[in-house]
Design a protein around this nucleic acid. Structure first.
Length: 287
DNA sequence: CTCCAGGCGCCTT
DNA sequence: AAGGCGCATGGA
């Protein structure tokens, strides 16, 4: 099995933060590298100085699929310069400068976030790993790298029985995933068409799927389609907005959402990821 | 043991 | 429209 290798310039790119920030759930750290599946290919990534070294199996003439996934052409400083100049944002950016948004495949992203509700990130990783092991296709990987699998296509999960999905520890989310897979595989919701829609229409389409509410729809809009205004509000972001911006009074979620749409500017989604990662990784605060 | 997790759907007011 | 609750499962 031949290995292809490529080095990409990646200044201002914190690979560790990016791959552990709860947007993608399939990366494993092994021997100082990150291993995962992108475009159904096994990939090994290492950050060295201002570059990312990538390896994959087979002959690769064109690396655009990986460049796109990692969003290597994004100029981070121009994004950060659009953030509001206030103390919470400055603190969050200082804490994890180099954090990036990936551009994931829509179905994998959607299915993963259907499985994410009231789960901790480690558990989401376990469920997704089980799902891929049982219903994905083996992906060629070097000897000794362990077993890797593609993310199961929607049609395959649509054909599963609910009990088979439940066996992947997803509990009450199983019927949601199964019927969402059915609707996607029949193109009742056409994932390929969403990128050309205005963000509000794309969100409405996603929310037709069972188990997909506002928050999960926004995750998919941001992490898979790259809508820069999508601003998922989960318990962590809620806590960030509440404690960092409105410490003195309790504000209802609709107001926080409206605040998030106006306060954080045209790259609100990026700002959200910084707040999320900062809240999750900072030292516990004394109340 | 209890509390909570990158929520949602459905049932009450 | 707005608020409350149950849901599987497992970490902390």
């Amino acid at each position: 099995m031949s290995i292809s290798r490529q080095t990409f310039a990646a200044p201002d790119y914190d690979l560790d933060a990016t791959l552990t920030s709860g947007q993608a759930f399939r990366w494993r750290r092994r021997e100082g590298a990150w291993e995962g599946i992108v475009s159904n290919r096994w990939v090994r990534l290492v950050k060295i100085d201002d570059a990312i070294d990538a390896q994959t199996c087979g002959e690769i003439a064109d690396w655009d699929w990986l460049r796109h996934y990692l969003q290597l052409d994004v100029d981070l400083s121009s994004i950060i310069s659009t953030f509001p100049d206030d103390e919470p944002m400055r603190t969050a950016v200082r804490a994890c400068r180099g954090l990036r948004l990936l551009r994931q495949e829509p179905w994998e992203c959607l299915a993963s976030f259907i499985l994410s509700s009231t789960k901790q990130i480690v558990q989401i990783q376990q469920i997704v790993a089980l799902l891929c092991e049982r219903f994905g296709d083996p992906a060629p990987a070097p000897v000794g790298a362990g077993a890797y699998f593609s993310f199961p296509p929607a049609a395959r999960l649509a054909a599963c029985r609910e009990a088979d999905l439940r066996a992947c520890k997803m509990g009450f989310r199983a019927p949601y995933l199964r019927s969402a897979a059915e609707m996607v595989s029949r193109a009742e919701v056409d994932l390929a068409a969403l990128s050309s829609l205005p963000v509000d229409q794309a969100r409405d389409e996603l929310m037709k799927l069972p188990g997909v509410g506002r928050k999960i729809a926004d995750c998919v809009l941001l992490f898979a389609y790259g809508f820069p205004q999508a601003f998922p509000v989960d318990v962590w972001v809620m806590k960030a907005l509440q404690t960092l911006y409105f410490p003195r009074r309790r504000v209802r979620i609709e107001r926080l959402r409206r605040f998030s749409q106006t306060h954080f500017g045209p790259q609100a989604g990026y700002a959200q990821q910084y707040l999320f990662h900062y809240m999750r990784t900072r030292k516990p605060q004394a109340v």
